[in-house]
């Protein structure tokens, strides 16, 4: 609350500073009397202090509510659990993490998400292209595609739990066309792809909207020119649309990546609970399990620190991508 309220008070200080600068200049030019000089020195001290005071609430909030807990968490990850609660154990927790096949699976799945990212971007991109090219019924599709984005992951998970159950409707449909039932959520080789597929289904609406916004900036003259030159649809997509939308595509890559790494917990929790055989663990889920189910908060802190570092690397890479695309302007 102090932050919000402090913003109006910034303005008077700003003007005060401008006035002060004028005062100082006058004093220096005039060079008259010690009284005004002393006043200006006192003014300078107050001026120096003013920005610090004004920044203090924001800085203190960041330091005490963001950085300090972060450091506490990192520090906590170097202490033990259970009988060794509170004692320093060095890198034991991190070694245990490396040794835990479950955590390695979780990290492997993060890698898998990165590999599947192009698919998650291509799907809304292609569908947006079709809508942009006005396929029949494009207005209908535009609203239908966005619809899942307003559903909570828990509801999406529950719906797909029913649909993808072993004796559920999806397998029944497969059965009628002669394909054997697949245990979508019970087969360790399939489950992670099922969950990622549902995640893409649930979230691609947002990316689709971003793509459509990008299309609105595309110069229709280029498309007309391509049509006049006799370009086929794939050629138009490849040579005109993709280059024209490069910045939008990069943006969608970044936001989809963040979404996949940070918001799949709800879906995992409802659909697989990390199973079967621990094949759908992601670091977030691992942290939750260790903290809540195994009573290993320090180990969970270590896993959080590792996840934080991964996100830091991914985030920095994404910032550099965004900056590069911004520089093209």
């Amino acid at each position: 609350m102090p932050v919000g309220r402090s913003s109006p008070s910034v303005r008077p200080a700003d003007t005060g500073r401008a006035e002060g600068a004028g005062f100082e200049q006058r004093a220096r030019h005039g060079g008259t009397g010690t009284h005004s000089r002393r006043a200006s020195r006192a003014g300078t001290a107050a001026e120096r202090l003013a920005p610090l005071v004004l920044l203090a609430p924001a800085v203190l909030i960041i330091v005490f509510l963001r950085l300090w807990p972060l450091l506490l968490g990192v520090n906590f990850s170097f202490t033990g659990d259970g009988a060794r609660n509170g004692t320093a154990v060095g890198f034991d927790n991190y070694l245990e993490l490396l040794d835990d096949p479950l955590f390695r699976t979780a990290l492997g799945n993060v890698g898998l998400l990165v590999v599947l990212l192009p698919v998650a971007v291509a799907i809304p991109g292609l569908l947006a292209t079709f809508i942009y090219l006005r396929v029949p019924g494009h207005r209908f599709y535009r609203s239908v595609y966005f619809f899942p984005a307003v559903l909570s992951p828990v509801i999406v998970g529950a719906i797909f739990n029913l649909i993808l159950a072993f004796d559920g409707p999806f397998n029944a449909v497969l059965g009628t066309i002669g394909l054997g039932p697949v245990d979508w959520l019970g087969d360790p080789g399939v489950a992670i792809f099922t969950v990622v597929g549902v995640q893409i289904w649930a979230t691609f609406g947002m990316a689709l909207v971003v793509f459509l916004a990008g299309f609105s900036t595309l110069d229709p003259a280029l498309l007309d020119a391509a049509r006049v030159d006799g370009a086929s649809l794939p050629q138009t997509v490849w040579h005109v649309i993709i280059p024209g939308l490069s910045r939008t595509i990069q943006f969608v890559f970044v936001t989809t990546m963040i979404g996949m790494l940070t918001s799949m917990f709800g879906l995992l929790y409802v659909m697989t609970a990390g199973g079967p055989e621990g094949s759908t663990y992601l670091p977030e889920f691992y942290i939750w399990t260790q903290q809540g189910q195994m009573n290993r908060p320090a180990l969970a802190s270590a896993a959080s620190t590792v996840l934080f570092l991964i996100m830091l690397v991914v985030g920095l890479a994404q910032i550099s991508v965004l900056r590069r695309s911004g520089g093209e302007d």
Binding site: S9, P12, E19, F23, A46, V53
Partner: peptide, 8 residues
């Protein structure tokens, strides 16, 4: 000016 700073 000083007034302003104190004020804030």
């Amino acid at each position: 000016m000083k007034q302003h700073t104190l004020w804030s």
